[in-house]
C-alpha cells in the first residue's frame, strides 16, 4: 500500500497566489446595476416627457402612493429570504384593514383598533407558518390556499363584500391621522413604511435571527446541522411578514376611511415583482429590503409617469410587465455570460 507517504507535511502547500484566487474578490457584477439603471432610466424618460414629473409635489405623491406597496414588499422580502413566497400577503393587508375598520366602527379607541388589526393579520401569518413549517406544505401552495380562503372570509365577514365606511364624525382623530396626518414633514404612511423598512432591514442584517433565516432560506438542512433553529425561524418569518402587511392594512383603513374587500390583493403581484427586481442588486440574488424598495420605486414611478403622460390604463400593465421582464432577462443573460 502506498500508505501516507503521498501526503506532504502539514502546512506544506505551495505558497503564492493560485490561479482563480482573484475571482473571489468582491466586485460589482454588471447585473447588480440593472435595477438602479432602470430606475434612473425611468426618471430620465418621464422627466423629459412630462414637465410635471420631476416636481416636489409630484414626488410627494409618488412617495405617498408607494408607502403601502413598500410595506407589502418588505413583508414579501422577509418570506422570500426565508426560502418561501407569500401569496396571501394581500389577505394579511385586508384582514389588518378589516380588523381596524371594524373596531373603529364599533367605537373602540384608536390603539385598540390598531392592535386588533395587527392581530387579525397575524392570524394569516400563523396559519402560513403552521402549514409551511409544521405540516410541510410548499409555501407557494400553502399561501395560495390561504389566499383563497382569506378572500372568501372577507366576503363572509362583510356580508357578501359590502365595504365598511367610516364617516368623519365617528372616526376618532387619533385613527384618521394614521392615513392622513404628517410627521416630520412626511405623510404618516410614508414615515411608517420607512420605519418598518428600517426595522426589518436591521433585523434581517444585524441579528442572529436574520442570519439563520437567510441561511435556512437557502439550505435548511445545512442550517439545522450548523446548529440554527431553521424551523422556528422560518415560521417566525411568516409572522413578521403578516405583521408588516397588517400595518399596511391598518394604514389603508385609515387612509381610505374604511374597509373595501380585496383592496390588499392589488399589492401581492407588484410586491413579488419588486422583491425579485430588488434581488438583482445582490451578487448572489439575495433579497434585501433596500432592493425591494428600489423595485417598489420602479413600479410606482412607472405608473405615476404613465399617468402623467396620459397613457391608457390598458397599456400600463404591459409596460410594467415589460420592465420587470427586461430587468430579469438582462440579469439572467449577464449571469450566464459571467460563467
Amino acid at each position: 500500500m502506498t500508505a501516507t507517504t503521498e501526503r506532504p507535511a502539514g502546512g506544506a502547500a505551495p505558497a503564492g497566489a493560485r490561479p482563480g484566487a482573484e475571482r473571489h474578490r468582491k466586485r460589482l457584477r454588471p447585473a447588480q446595476l440593472l435595477a438602479p439603471l432602470s430606475l434612473a432610466a425611468i426618471v430620465v424618460t418621464f422627466g423629459v416627457l412630462s414637465e410635471n414629473f420631476l416636481t416636489g409635489s409630484n414626488l410627494q405623491v409618488v412617495l405617498a402612493s408607494s408607502a403601502l406597496l413598500a410595506l407589502a414588499a418588505v413583508a414579501m422580502t422577509v418570506v422570500v429570504r426565508a426560502g418561501g413566497i407569500d401569496l396571501s400577503v394581500g389577505v394579511a393587508v385586508d384582514l389588518g384593514a378589516y380588523g381596524a375598520a371594524a373596531l373603529v366602527a364599533a367605537g373602540y379607541v384608536p390603539w385598540v383598533a390598531v392592535v386588533g388589526g395587527l392581530l387579525c393579520a397575524l392570524v394569516v401569518g400563523a396559519v402560513n407558518a403552521v402549514l409551511v413549517t409544521v405540516v410541510g406544505i410548499r409555501p407557494f401552495l400553502a399561501t395560495l390556499a390561504v389566499w383563497l380562503i382569506g378572500s372568501s372570509a372577507q366576503q363572509l365577514l362583510t356580508g357578501g363584500g359590502a365595504p365598511i365606511y367610516l364617516s368623519r364624525g365617528e372616526t376618532p382623530d387619533g385613527f384618521r391621522v394614521l392615513g392622513g396626518g404628517q410627521v416630520l414633514g412626511l405623510d404618516v404612511p410614508v414615515a411608517a413604511a420607512l420605519v418598518g423598512a428600517l426595522v426589518v432591514a436591521a433585523v434581517l442584517g444585524g441579528t442572529v435571527w436574520g442570519r439563520v433565516l437567510t441561511a435556512a432560506g437557502d439550505q435548511p438542512s445545512a442550517t439545522r446541522i450548523a446548529g440554527g433553529a431553521a424551523g422556528s425561524t422560518v415560521a417566525s418569518a411568516y409572522l413578521l411578514a403578516a405583521l408588516v402587511a397588517g400595518l399596511a392594512g391598518v394604514l389603508l383603513a385609515s387612509k381610505s376611511s374604511g374597509f373595501v374587500p380585496f383592496s390588499g390583493q392589488l399589492y401581492v403581484l407588484d410586491a413579488i415583482g419588486a422583491v425579485f427586481i430588488g434581488a438583482t442588486l445582490s451578487r448572489t440574488g439575495r433579497t434585501s429590503v433596500v432592493g425591494s424598495l428600489v423595485g417598489v420605486l420602479i413600479f410606482t414611478l412607472l405608473s405615476n409617469g404613465m399617468n402623467l403622460v396620459a397613457l391608457s390604463a390598458f397599456w400600463q400593465d404591459l409596460a410594467r410587465g415589460l420592465v420587470l421582464l427586461a430587468v430579469l432577462v438582462a440579469a439572467a443573460v449577464l449571469a450566464r455570460r459571467a460563467r
Binding site: 442570519r211 437567510t214 441561511a215 437557502d218 439550505q219 438542512s221 445545512a222 446541522i225
Partner: peptide
C-alpha cells in the same frame, strides 16, 4: 448541501 451555505460568505 449540508456543510456550508453556498451563497453565503465564509464569514457568514
Amino acid at each position: 448541501r449540508d456543510g456550508i451555505v453556498v451563497r453565503a460568505t465564509v464569514r457568514e
